[in-house]
Amino acid sequence: MKWIPCIVLLLAGGGLFAQQPTADYILQKIDDNQNADSRIISSRMIIHGRRGSRTIESKSWIEGDEKSFTEYLAPAREKGTKMLKLGDDLWTYSPSTDRIIRISGHMLRQSVMGSDLSYEDMMEDHSLVEMYKATIIGSERIDDRDCWIIELTAKNEEVAYYARKIWVDRERYNILREDRFGKSGRLLKTTTVSDVRMQDGRWVAGRIVFKDVLKNGEGTEFLVDSVEFNRDIPAYLFSKAALKK
């Protein structure tokens, strides 16, 4: 799944520059750090609902920007459900029905497993540099880390969020907080990162909280248990046949 590297690496870039670079440079830096050939990520998603919380465990194999394969491990009901993303296409497989179904159109807007994220949010794989014009608008200290505040404005019309504001760690080049806005300037979603740690030689966000601010509730927590970079992933994993295996 592309979205996991997006989140993890977007939020956890590494770097040595301590002086004030340009906003584009910072974005480039964040984007560059995503350029691992492949990643294998184990994670848990904690979804808070009105009736209590649920934890969904999954493991993802990702190659480049276009290919990803995710398998859900827990709870029992979700175990064995798999998703395959190749470019703009998304397929899902459920063992109970033994069917592979393409998720398209309207379905992409649905939330993933009841979380505050939609399939579309997951599918977003264009780099920030490509999509947004960036300006540094200030700096702030978050969780004892010095951050630049960068404002991003959409370069073209086809983006889900017209504007974003990101707080980037000046030293590690990872994003510690992100606000997403509509054209009208209305805040729509927030992302908060904590528990940044070194894994496999990179700074990785350990805990990310997504929140749809229009909605009541505590949002969705995303916990990264482990990340491995640049491992060999067998090519057959990124085929529909692998879904049924």
Binding site: A154, E158, V159, A160, G182, K183, R186, L214
Partner: peptide, 10 residues
């Protein structure tokens, strides 16, 4: 969401 699928709220 507008015709380009961009979210907004007001």
């Amino acid at each position: 969401r507008d015709v380009n699928d961009t979210f907004d709220a007001t």
